[in-house]
Amino acid sequence: MTAPTERADAARNRLRILDAARRLLAADGFAELSLDAVAKEAGVGVGTVYRRFRDRPGLVYALIEDNENRFQEAFARREGATPAARERLRAFLHGMAELVEENRALLLLAEASAPAGRYHSAPFRRHHGQIVDLVAELAPGADAAYVADLLLMAYTPGLFDFQRTERGWDLDRIKRGLDVFVAGLGAAEDEGKGEGNAEGKGEGEGRTSSPG
């Protein structure tokens, strides 16, 4: 009977610690984030924080992964309610923009620590696979893996931060830019289908008018 209670307490403590870290990040930025400060904000012992996360990078990656899990759960709910591939891809890309915005400070730190690490991370591979599936459904003739790489470049932390801070673009502008790309993919596929139908019709008409 004791073990399940301990596991539940540990899970609650984890959520309290992550929520406390988010509050500190929002108020003071990453420079002021320390495990001691997080423990005080969360109302737990410092040892509890160190045992679970070991150091500040461990806490950072736990925050990123927790936000990623929330994003995936939200997208799964949206995906079930949106049958069209075009709208599902659009919803996914919009959700990704919101995810990067929420994690911007954390992702910038991760990018600075290991510039190429993003491309080998579990979230990047997961996002790439999801976009490949959606693009393949929306535009079967496209090189889905290459298109997925292009789309994911929009979420490179340094570029995204430059657009938000130096260029002063808001999130809606970034989403509208992604919409243009999705619309282009769908239009290219529709055009390809139309050309295929026209060619097929022409061949059929030719055969019909040929002497029997």
Rank of each mutant, 00 (worst) to 15 (best):
M1Q: 08
A3M: 11
T5D: 15
E6C: 08
R7D: 07
R7P: 03
D9K: 14
D9W: 02
A11N: 03
A11T: 10
N13T: 11
N13C: 13
I17R: 03
L18Q: 06
D19A: 12
A20K: 07
A21Y: 02
R22P: 00
R22L: 07
D28R: 15
G29K: 10
F30A: 10
A31D: 14
E32L: 07
E32V: 02
L35I: 05
L35Y: 05
D36N: 02
D36F: 00
A37R: 15
V38A: 06
V38H: 10
A39K: 04
E41R: 11
A42E: 01
G43D: 04
G45A: 14
G45S: 12
Y50T: 08
R52N: 12
F53I: 01
R54C: 04
R54N: 07
G58W: 12
L59N: 03
V60N: 03
L63E: 03
I64R: 05
I64E: 04
E65Y: 03
D66Q: 11
D66H: 13
N67S: 14
N67C: 03
E68P: 01
R70A: 14
F71S: 05
G80K: 13
G80D: 05
G80R: 15
G80T: 10
A81I: 08
A81K: 15
A84W: 09
A84L: 10
R86C: 07
R86F: 09
R86D: 14
F92L: 13
L93I: 01
G95C: 09
E98A: 12
E98N: 06
E98S: 10
L99M: 12
E101A: 11
E101V: 00
E102G: 01
E102S: 09
R104T: 06
R104D: 06
L106V: 09
L107T: 01
L108Y: 05
L108G: 02
A110G: 08
E111S: 11
A112V: 06
S113H: 06
A116D: 15
A116E: 15
G117N: 08
R118M: 02
R118P: 00
R118C: 02
Y119G: 07
Y119N: 09
H120T: 14
P123N: 09
G129F: 01
Q130A: 11
I131F: 02
V132I: 13
V132R: 08
L134Q: 07
A136E: 08
L138M: 05
P140H: 07
D143Q: 09
D143C: 00
D143P: 02
Y146K: 06
V147E: 09
A148E: 06
L150E: 08
A154W: 02
A154D: 03
T156D: 15
T156I: 09
T156L: 14
T156H: 13
D161V: 04
F162M: 13
F162E: 06
Q163T: 00
G168L: 04
G168Y: 01
W169F: 13
R173H: 10
K175M: 14
K175H: 05
K175A: 12
K175T: 11
D179V: 01
D179C: 02
L185S: 04
G186I: 02
G192I: 04
G194N: 12
G194S: 13
A198P: 02
E199M: 13
E199H: 08
E199N: 07
E199F: 10
G200I: 04
G200V: 00
K201A: 15
G202C: 01
G202P: 04
G206Y: 11
R207V: 15
R207F: 06
T208G: 14
G212W: 07
